[in-house]
């Protein structure tokens, strides 16, 4: 018998009587203050958040906060110079010198600060990991309360690869001392895009 058949036979022989799946419908988050809650959690995990009106603002922030003499790449051609629109077909190793990558999230989760990035939003799978600094554009309307709403929106998904990314790469392996920038980005910045921003405070 092949390993496959003998494992499956042993599993079938040994598994207990069928038990039911629990009802997941009670699990859902509250749909209020999503932007503020997201921003607070994301800052708490070592990320930086800016609330912006358009891509021009993001471009200016990128230039002022990162070394624009180095390589900036993006999947958003509208970001303009000095960003280079990244190619989906070049050798992924060629991104090893990227200083800043700015890509757009499909979803963001208020409860944990993570953004959902299916691979077409990354340009290439390696991009959000290999860059020294990661910037992610989050349209205000794509922020959902919890992972339950996120997975409901993702559905089956057409991606070959996708990831939740919730902050800069980190490690605490040496004496539990937190160090940002283990193997991936040293910083992660989220730009929350609110094109039709109205004052949040009532007048």
């Amino acid at each position: 018998m092949s390993a496959r058949d003998s494992i499956l036979a042993a599993v079938l022989r040994n598994q207990p009587a069928l038990s039911p799946l629990p009802d997941l419908s009670p699990f859902r988050g509250e749909d209020r203050d999503l932007i503020a809650r997201y921003a607070e959690i994301f800052a708490g995990i070592g990320g930086q958040v800016f609330r912006v009106r358009d891509l021009t603002e993001i471009n200016a922030l990128a230039r002022s906060r990162f070394d624009a003499d180095r390589r900036f790449v993006t999947t958003l051609p509208e970001l303009g110079e000095p960003f280079e629109t990244l190619s989906a077909t070049v050798d992924p190793h060629s991104f090893n010198d990227v200083e800043l990558a700015v890509i757009e999230a499909e979803l963001a989760v208020a409860e944990n600060g993570a953004v959902w990035l299916p691979e077409h939003r990354m340009g290439q799978r390696i991009v959000p990991y290999i860059c020294q600094h990661l910037g992610v554009v989050v349209r205000a309307e794509v922020i959902v309360p919890t992972l339950h709403e996120a997975y409901a929106r993702i559905g089956a998904g057409q991606y070959g690869f996708g990831a939740f990314i919730g902050g800069p790469s980190k490690t605490a392996d040496i004496e539990q001392a937190l160090v940002l920038g283990a193997h991936g980005p040293i910083t992660m910045t989220v730009f929350i895009l609110e094109p039709t921003t109205v004052p949040t405070e009532p007048a």
Binding site: L24, I45, E111, L147, I165, S169
Partner: peptide, 30 residues
Amino acid sequence: KAHMGIFLRLLARSATGQPITIYSSHFKKP
């Protein structure tokens, strides 16, 4: 996949007190 909402809410909080691990990578196709 919807069950991942349950497990990812529990995993990192139980492990280190983080709201989620920094990377939760979903590999579907090469």
